[in-house]
Amino acid sequence: MLSPVLTVEAVHVSYGRIDAVRDVSFEVPEGGLVTLIGANGAGKSSVLGAVSGLVRPKKGVIRLDGKDISRWPIHRRVGAGLILVPEGRQILGSLTVAENLRLGAQRRRRHAVAESDMYRLFPVLAERRALPASALSGGEQQMLAIARAMIARPRVILLDEPSMGLSPKMVDEVFTVIEKIRAQGVTVVLVEQNARRALRVADTGHVLETGALAHSGPAVELLKHPKVVEAYLGIE
């Protein structure tokens, strides 16, 4: 079994008196693809927030390559190759596609890949490189958000709801890109409401319910788990 590059140990996240995440633990092996699924408000994005440094856990430990990074600031985690693609994309609409990518490269300047490599991975961005990011469709903006993370050559990429609000065609394209990223050896943690698609591309899945892990296991087994099917997958 591959050693975990990322370990989440008994993490607890609270917002005031509200417990958003309770005692969540899982490991992500080097080069693996792990998905977190669950209903809205289940705590999925809060877990990614704790891992990326956007929120500080009330309790628990987060390790990268065995090092406790729980108190590291965001920029230090990014420098170590742990990069978040946030829900809602958060691209800079007034800048061009190319300028957004160059900003992404500044995150890990010594490790960044060539801009041309991103255009090969995302051909639609090559066609629109001189356009302001605000002129892109929602799906194209999502591609840009992922490319902006990938240009920094992440060791672990955290994807928060990458298919949200996209057309079925663009959802297909996003998941194709996720599989390409994984094929390059990048470790992926995917938070996704499209549970069936997420489990189909993942090695391991974790189901969150009201902030706690309800089910965990190989993704192929969760696709057939009666309670997971009933609650999140339905009839195809």
Score class of each variant (00 low, 15 high):
Ile91Gln: 00
Ala152Lys: 01
Asn100His: 07
Ala147Gln: 09
Thr96Trp: 04
Arg108His: 11
Arg153Ser: 13
Arg77Trp: 08
Trp72Pro: 13
Leu166Gln: 06
Gly93Cys: 03
Gln141Ile: 00
Ile91Val: 11
Glu99Trp: 08
Ala135Glu: 09
Phe122Val: 14
Ala126Gly: 15
Arg77Lys: 11
Val174His: 06
Val78Gln: 02
Glu161Trp: 03
Gly138Arg: 01
Leu166Glu: 03
Pro168Trp: 09
Leu103Val: 15
Lys67Pro: 12
Arg120Cys: 06
Ala152Glu: 00
Val174Ala: 02
Leu131Gly: 02
Leu136Arg: 04
Gly79Thr: 03
Leu84Ser: 07
His111Trp: 11
Arg71Asn: 14
Asp160Ser: 03
Gly81Pro: 11
Gly88Trp: 02
Pro86Trp: 01
Arg129Glu: 03
Ala98Trp: 08
Ser134Thr: 08
Arg108Ala: 04
Arg77Asn: 08
Lys67Gly: 07
Pro162Leu: 03
Ala80Pro: 00
Leu131Cys: 06
Gly88Tyr: 01
Leu158Phe: 04
Ala133His: 08
Thr96Gly: 10
Val85Tyr: 09
Glu127Pro: 03
Leu92Asp: 01
Ile146Asn: 10
Asn100Lys: 08
Ala130Glu: 10
Asp117His: 13
Gln106Cys: 13
Ala126Lys: 06
Ala80Cys: 00
Arg108Gly: 12
Arg76Gln: 15
Leu121Ser: 12
Val171Gly: 10
Ser70Met: 01
Met150Asp: 02
Ala130Gly: 14
Ala135Lys: 13
Ala98Val: 09
Leu166Trp: 09
Arg155Ile: 04
Ser167Thr: 15
Ser70Arg: 05
Arg89Gly: 00
Arg120Val: 07
Lys67Cys: 11
Arg109Phe: 10
Ile157Asn: 06
Asp117Glu: 15
Gly66Ala: 01
Ile69Ala: 07
Pro132Leu: 05
Ser70Tyr: 03
Ala112Lys: 13
Ala133Trp: 10
Met143Phe: 00
Asp117Ile: 11
Glu140Ala: 07
Val174Pro: 15
Gly165Trp: 01
Leu121Thr: 14
Ile91Gly: 00
Ala98Thr: 11
Ala133Glu: 03
Asp68His: 10
Met170Cys: 13
Gln90Ala: 00
Arg153Cys: 11
Ser94Asn: 15
Phe122Lys: 08
Gly88His: 03
Phe175Ile: 07
Gly93Tyr: 08
Ile157Gln: 07
Arg71Ser: 12
Pro123Met: 02
Arg129Gln: 10
Asp160Phe: 05
Pro86Glu: 00
Gly104His: 00
Met150Glu: 05
Ser134His: 09
Val85Arg: 07
